[in-house]
Amino acid sequence: MSRPKQLFRNLNAKIASIPMILTAVVIFVGGTAWTVVHSFTNSRLLPRLNFIGLAQYERLWTTPRWLISIENLLIYGSLSLIFSLLVGFILAALLDQKIRFEDTFRTIFLYPFALSFVVTGLVWQWLLNPDFGVQSVVRSMGWESFTFNPLYDKDLVIYGILFAGLWQGTGLVMCLMLAGLRGIDEDVWKAARVDGIPMWKTYLFIVIPMMRPVFVTTLVIIASGVVRVYDLVVAQTSGGPALASEVPAKYVYDYMFAAQNLGQGFAASTMMLLTVAIIIVPWAYLEFGRRR
């Protein structure tokens, strides 16, 4: 007898949230399901329900370009996780030392985050261009043989993109970390000082474990950003030289639209969804599952 009451309790709020629920169900869940279903078809320019089993996936995993994209994503992803967490935390810890002009520094470090990936990509394309970037500046100062040309070197290009990505994103990580550090009770620090524990040990063994939720949230933000990296690559290298800086999101776009092969693009985007699910599901389980 209590069930209908539950349903109609707070009715206004429930009605008000109907549009958002519909959006979530129809657009996100529905769109995702539609994409997954069509990834098993041979749709070309227009979606068609002509099922061909796993053929799109078989083709995907034998395509050299997709394999290069995955490899690049792994390099870019793991390094940008490590470095943005490391650098972001160190910057936050330094800012937390009650220094002067903290606001100024924080603004400076966070500023790149205000730029879009497209602008970031273009700026770093120019900075790393051998003809008018860092290389030409150093050469004009007299070091004629200086060579610094990462964007035109197949083995280095992904690190050139990584650097631009870190430059853009580390400020945000720093701010999240700083918020986490500010959340640590002053008394913890006092107690550590009374016990004579050195500062680095306090950070490593007391503060960081206490900041676990902040770290997990940051990790998810960085990881989801990594999986969908696209605009940065397009603006900086458009995938070149050759296919050396291709990423999965670019494969999806190119095959869905330029190659007029929706089936192949959908198969690739389903694989990306799977990657995100692998990241998000354990996190959601850890964060929300425990509380029950």
Partner: peptide, 13 residues
């Protein structure tokens, strides 16, 4: 266009 794109990927590499 699908075949042409695959060829593009091959030859640019």
């Amino acid at each position: 266009e699908d075949t042409n794109n695959q060829l593009n990927d091959l030859f640019v590499e």
